[in-house]
Computed example of a mutant assay.
Amino acid sequence: MKNTVITFRQAKGREKLTMLTAYDYSTARLMDQEGINALLVGDSLGMVMLGHPDTLSVTLEDMIHHCAAVARGASSALVVCDMPFMSYQVSVPETLRNAGRLIREGRAQAVKLEGGAHFCPQVRALVRASIPVMGHLGLTPQSVHALGGYKVQGKSAAAAQKLLDDARALEDAGAFSLVLECVPAALAARISREISIPTIGIGAGPDCDGQVLVWQDMLGLCDTLAPKFVKRFGAVGQAMRAAFAAYAREVKSGTFPAQEHCYSLEDEAAVLEKLY
């Protein structure tokens, strides 16, 4: 069954939702075939695909390019695309134009933006324009400088109340779902109970309505220390390194390509004799 923003909302309280980041056609196709509910074309691509130190250098053109590739590989998963830094912060009209490009050119089926009540005018305008919106609270990577780094959010009573208020505001503004990143598990559970839209956790405990991970993290492609909330579901990075090393050894030793990898001529001697 095709996953849509409607089925996403209907899943709350019935079944856990699965979401993974995706940035290319081939990976998206594999995830889609295994029944992942949603593919997030995250601005995390700036770090895991483009080698930037953070998400702030990612452009709208980057997001459109990668989202279109993911959309071509997804037949049943819901495709959600991040709005990159400064694509929605300036004004409501600019937000609409940029989100419209992600939908029209990137073939996204929903957009995600970071921030709470302050951005509700943008959320309302997008929803009025029939562009579904996923919110994002807690650790919001585009605000890394303002937050003083990648830190758990909502640890004090005041900060926890602010997150709950922002979640309610985004729900009221029309968001169909909400990512909670690096939020204490008990607080994420409270927020999930308080709002009627599904919450998708990443470092926010088991009581969210679904989970999301960066696929390079969960498959061990990154050599750097993974965040505490990441579980390695496969040693794909290790397997890839072993395969690359084996390829290099066989090419250098002359054992690849072998006879079974080569094409032959029907009358080899006769053809070669005619060459000059």
Rank of each mutant, 00 (worst) to 15 (best):
V5A: 05
F8D: 03
R14T: 12
R14V: 15
T18I: 10
Y25S: 05
Y25G: 07
T27A: 09
L30G: 10
M31S: 08
M31N: 06
D32R: 04
Q33G: 15
E34T: 13
D43H: 00
D43V: 06
M49P: 05
M49F: 00
P53Y: 01
T55M: 08
E61W: 07
A68W: 13
V70W: 09
V70G: 02
A74K: 03
C81Q: 02
D82Q: 00
P84A: 00
V90C: 12
S91I: 06
E94Y: 14
T95N: 10
L96S: 04
L96V: 10
R97E: 15
A110K: 04
V111A: 03
K112D: 00
L113M: 11
E114R: 05
F119A: 04
Q122R: 04
R124T: 11
A129N: 05
I131W: 05
P132E: 01
G135D: 03
L147S: 09
V152Q: 10
Q153C: 01
K155I: 11
A157I: 12
Q161P: 12
L163N: 10
L163S: 10
L164Q: 11
D166A: 06
A175N: 07
F176D: 06
F176A: 07
S177D: 01
V179P: 07
A188K: 07
S196C: 11
I197C: 06
T199Y: 07
G201S: 10
A204W: 08
G205E: 08
P206W: 03
C208D: 06
Q211A: 05
V214L: 00
D217H: 07
L219C: 13
L221R: 02
L221K: 08
C222Y: 11
T224Q: 14
P227E: 05
Q238G: 13
R241T: 11
A242F: 08
A245R: 13
A246Q: 15
Y247P: 10
R249V: 11
S253R: 00
S253M: 07
T255E: 06
Q259F: 14
H261A: 12
C262V: 12
S264G: 13
D267H: 13
A270F: 11
Y276Q: 14
